[in-house]
Design a protein around this nucleic acid. Structure first.
Length: 427
RNA sequence: AGAGGAGUGGUAGAGCGGUUUAUUGCACCGGUCUUGAAAACCGGAGACCCUUCACGGGGUCCGGGGGUUCGAAUCCCUCCUCCUCUGCCA
């Protein structure tokens, strides 16, 4: 959520930034917010002045009562009755204005950073870096959805039976490979100084609002109506919300966390032609890194986090490219996002495996996540996160790129975790 | 899940309708003393909103929400969380 005082003081810059997102009604929303804010401030002042007077008179009544001047007290009470009524009405109006302002602010996305290019969608993203050789595979190369059947490691039919589409069952070496990847990612992050967190995988409404999934992505999360809980779409939600309503001390910073969780996404309306096999799932595993930083160091941190994820891809021997997302493709909450995509040689497609974002104060202002600086002033912090990494497409790329006549070659760095070097015959 | 008890500032813990602008201890910060520190003494300290160039002023906050009252931390309703006992269960 953008802060209203920031919008008020930088209308031009905010509008110019939002233009890069190629969104139609930015100006309308911003103007609406400013109008409601003006009303809110007027009501606040009227209300406070009146309540202040009522408070003063109440105190006098107390004194009169105590000194036994009941009649005079009663007179003052009578005189105050109308003031009280007006104050209560003003209070209602103020509340309404505040709610209205909140509602509008929730609809305004983050302002993209200066470096973010304007653009409509994926075609306008900037390819800023590419690494690794695109593998040349023999003509009889198989896509991963064939390979998982050949070696009986991931079973979509079984998942269909017990749950539904998009809930695969991992079996044998397939299951062990998942576990190996999760452990590898967690260990690598720990070694870099990230503190491991194992959070709940359901969250309440307040957490959904805290990181911005609500109200923007209401229909995209699984919801348990009976207990009013949401299945998390990413570990970002519970981990970042650990710091909701928190004022940190400067010496507590920076905060660096890593966590593994399954992630749940309804993906309503997003199944298309290229969605096969592991490319898109309702439930998948992901290791997420989260950082909380002071404003002045957040962009440096974004680059560092990105380089860390790139390092993981290099250790896994996967060819990848790094995209700086354009305004239109940058998520609602993010000020700047890099996507990392690996090349899956059989599909001959780039698959997004990580998204690393700086949210600046957008989440922090919803979360009320602040720190006390050296001067003793409380300031909003910046939040950042990135996938490090999401498993299914990594698995897809490794299966496709590393296939040999004898089976799938496990990347060297994973062998200590898998305890096997090839995914071949059934276990 | 049922019965009972409890939620107050960083923490412990008083207050249970009107000198509460929330007592006090500890922890914290500043000062005096000291070469420095400790001790002692003195002082300070929260968050949010509105207003002001600023100094300052006003309002809100005692788990959340609602109510009673001229006046609520204090009384009532409701929800949440924690503790004890009982039940159930990985």
């Amino acid at each position: 959520m953008l802060q209203i005082n920031v919008i008020r003081e930088n209308v031009g810059k905010v509008l110019e930034g939002l233009k890069k997102r190629n969104m139609r009604d930015a100006e309308v929303l911003v103007n609406e917010a400013l109008t409601v804010d003006k009303i809110r401030r007027e009501k606040q002042k009227e209300h406070d002045d009146l309540v202040g007077e009522v408070n003063r008179i109440s105190k006098e009544v107390g004194n009169l009562m105590k000194s036994g001047q009941k009649q005079q007290a009663d007179e003052m009470i009578a005189k105050m009755a109308s003031n009280k009524k007006v104050a209560s009405e003003l209070g209602q109006e103020l509340l309404k204005a505040e709610e209205e302002l909140q509602r509008v602010l929730y609809l305004i996305p983050n302002v993209p950073a200066d470096k973010v290019p304007a653009g409509k969608g994926a075609e306008d993203n900037l390819n800023v870096y590419q690494h690794g050789q695109i593998p040349t595979l023999p003509p009889d190369v198989q896509p991963h959805w064939e390979l998982i059947k050949k070696y009986d490691i991931i079973d979509f039919d079984l998942g269909n039976k017990i749950s539904g589409a998009g809930f695969p069952v991992y079996k044998g070496k397939g299951a062990k490979f998942q576990r190996a990847l999760i452990n590898f990612f967690l260990e690598e992050a720990s070694r870099q100084g990230y503190t491991e967190i194992q959070p709940p995988i359901v969250v309440n409404k307040a957490s959904g609002y805290g990181t911005g999934q609500l109200p923007d992505k209401e229909g995209q999360m699984y919801f348990i109506a009976e207990d009013e809980l949401y299945l998390i779409p990413t570990a970002e939600v519970p981990i970042t919300n650990l710091y909701r309503d928190v004022i940190l001390n400067e010496q507590d910073l920076p905060i660096r966390h890593v966590g593994y969780t399954p992630c749940f996404r309804r993906e309503a309306g997003s199944w298309g032609a290229h969605v096969r096999g592991l490319n898109r799932l309702h439930q998948f595993d992901k290791v997420e890194i989260v950082q909380i930083r002071k404003a002045e160091e957040s962009y440096e941190t974004l680059e560092a986090m990105c380089l860390y994820v790139q390092g993981l891809l290099e250790k896994l021997e996967l060819p990848y490219r790094k995209l700086l997302l354009c305004g239109g493709d940058t998520g609602f909450n993010s000020a700047m996002t890099y996507d990392l995509e690996v090349y899956a040689a059989a599909q001959q497609r780039w698959l997004e495996v990580s998204s690393v974002s700086n949210f600046e104060t957008f989440q922090a202002s919803r979360l009320k996540l602040r720190y006390k600086n050296k001067e003793g002033k409380t300031q909003l912090l910046h939040t950042l996160n990135g996938s490090a990494l999401a498993l299914p497409r990594i698995v897809a790329a490794i299966l496709e790129n590393n296939q040999t006549p004898d089976g799938i070659r496990v990347p060297k760095v994973l062998v200590p975790y898998t305890q096997f070097e090839m995914i071949d015959a059934k276990l």
